[in-house]
Design a protein around this nucleic acid. Structure first.
Length: 496
RNA sequence: GGUGGGGUGGCCGAGUGGCGAGGCAGCGGCCUGCAAAGCCGUUAACGCGGGUUCGAUUCCCGUCCCCACCUCCA
């Protein structure tokens, strides 16, 4: 069964066939690094990470490119504010920080957030500031083709001429005439209020470091143009998939499509957009200030649970965050983990190292526009089948289930989420293990003489310390069980 | 005004013209010295009003409500 994906431009689910057999070219919008990442950013990254993993699992070579937009109005504005005498320095916005340092600092914060959730780095991650010549060339082509013009007010701005491009609005199915009139804020030099800036002329108040000498005058790029320039540089004038958050459809992606199309590039064949993360039903956004930082979630639940939560709804659906959602996700994740570690123990080393196939139903769900909720249903059903095999002591069935589960977990990216303490083997951990083993030995002794009060006292002490016990006929398993990223989820096992 | 997406059981969240995903929570049972984990069973839903149909949560019409975008946004 072939992969089918929803394409925003045609508003249909279509069969996905890469332009070049076996290879997929994918560009997806990363961040404008003007502030710390919030949950919405990482949800988007997780969604495309799952897409990439599924494409790769399907045997395709994915050339993934994600931009870093490191020059824009807000970045300059926030840097400028940090130089004002009334600016109150904070860890996020220290005093006297150059715009490029600010952008770089947040770029690293984004990496940290992505890494913490097991989002694989794209194959390449170009920065806008490193692609001025590509932007010059693109803008020049648009000027030459009469789809762009220098501002009439001598500001040095260059605008895209929306009225010169009848297809404008094709991505979001709007007619330019129907659009609500844009606020006429800086429309002085525009022919039409809907025209957007490809280039912004240098102003006396702008830092000299944010000034590039273009053929038509010094300045800096407008938003949108960097993505067109970088996507086509690395992926070609036609490429397979362009992605990003739903809020980027308009104006960002609409404008990208317009300027690339007008410059003669075919551009993306599929446009994928992930849904917004809401908080109590309201969109989470920088402008509303109701954002939740990934760190906040990571301190409320284990990283793997956070990743599970972010990926569990269909990528095009809205994802509503509630305080209990992370606990629910964690319970689900632990059910899977418990099975995998019990299975690994039962199969002790006889696991095949090759990748196991995923169930047919899982593939079908993933191929159906990445229906992760349904894929998760298959995953959980497989876990149940595995647990049954475990109880029935059926190693063949158990190995099959465990293999399938571990592959599904990999495809969903859950296995690559770094867990605190997962490094293992630290001296402290070894010491903890010894202590627990000693206590468990006491407990076994107490149990053997039916001194349950003493046995339960041991368990209570361990429970109070955040260590959960699980008895089975093969011995007692223990695991750190606190719902916090500061503790290790690693399980230890003891044969009794 | 324009464009698009939704309203599903206590909560989250798929899906389908009939044989009722999955998770979380609850209840009953098995297992266990008791727990935990696991398994089995179970409670329970399709915003509202019509229509089509043997049969609609699913299709059609109407209606109410919610959300997103319309040049800061993942």
């Amino acid at each position: 069964m072939a992969l089918r994906l929803y394409d925003t431009k045609t508003a249909t689910v279509r069969d996905f066939e890469p332009l070049e057999p076996g290879r997929v070219s994918l560009y997806y919008c990363g961040a404008t690094v003007q502030g710390r990442p919030h949950v919405g950013h990482v949800r988007s990254a997780v969604a495309f990470d799952i897409l990439i993993r599924w494409l790769e699992h399907s045997g395709l070579d994915v050339l993934s490119v994600r931009n870093v937009t490191d020059i824009d109005d807000k970045i300059l504005e926030k840097s400028a504010l940090s130089y004002l005498p009334e600016h109150i320095p904070s860890p996020d916005y220290p005093a006297r920080e150059p715009w490029f340092a600010l952008a770089y600092r947040f770029e690293q914060a984004f990496h940290q957030a992505y890494d913490a959730l097991g989002v694989k780095r794209p194959r390449y991650e170009p920065r806008a500031t490193g692609h001025m010549t590509e932007m010059f060339a693109l803008i020049q082509r648009l000027i030459d083709a009469d789809h762009a013009y220098p501002a009439q007010d001598g500001s040095g701005d260059v605008y895209f001429d929306v009225r010169s491009w009848p297809r404008y609005g094709e991505l979001t199915h709007q007619r330019a005439e129907d659009m609500q009139d844009a606020a006429d804020a800086d429309a002085r030099g525009k022919r039409d209020p809907r025209d957007f800036a490809l280039w912004k002329g240098h102003k006396a108040t702008d830092p000299e470091t944010a000034r590039w000498d273009a053929p038509w005058g010094a300045g800096r790029p407008g938003w949108h143009v960097e993505c067109s320039a970088m996507a086509t540089k690395y992926l070609g004038s036609r490429f397979d998939i362009h992605g990003g958050g739903l809020d980027l459809r308009f104006p960002h992606h609409e404008n990208e499509l317009a300027q690339s199309g007008a410059a003669g590039d075919d551009f993306a064949r599929f446009w994928l957009h992930n849904g917004m993360v809401t908080y109590a039903g309201e969109k989470m956004s920088k402008s509303l200030g109701n954002t939740i930082a990934p760190e906040e979630m990571l301190s409320a639940a284990r990283p793997r649970a956070v990743r599970y939560f972010l990926g569990q709804a269909h990528y095009r659906s809205q994802l509503d965050y509630r305080p209990t959602s992370l606990q629910e996700a964690q319970a689900a994740v632990e059910r899977i983990e418990t099975f995998l570690s019990r299975a690994a123990e039962a199969l002790s080393g006889q696991r095949r190292d090759s990748q196991d196939a995923v169930p047919e139903a899982f593939s079908a769900a993933m191929n159906d526009d990445l229906n992760v909720p349904q894929a998760l249903a298959v995953l959980h059903e497989t876990v149940r089948a595995g647990n049954i095999a475990l109880d029935a002591e059926d190693p063949e069935q158990l190995a099959r289930s465990a293999g399938a589960v571990s592959t599904m977990v990999q495809v969903l990216g859950l296995s690559d989420v770094p867990e605190a303490g997962a490094a293992g083997g630290s001296e402290a951990e070894a010491a903890l293990g010894e202590l627990i083993e000693a206590l468990l030995t006491d407990r076994v002794e107490a149990k053997s003489v039916k001194d349950y009060a003493r046995a339960d006292a041991v368990r209570d002490r361990l429970t109070a310390a955040g260590i959960a016990l699980e008895d089975s006929k093969d011995g007692t398993r223990w695991a750190l069980a606190r719902a916090s990223s500061t503790t290790s989820p690693d399980t230890g096992a003891r044969k009794g």
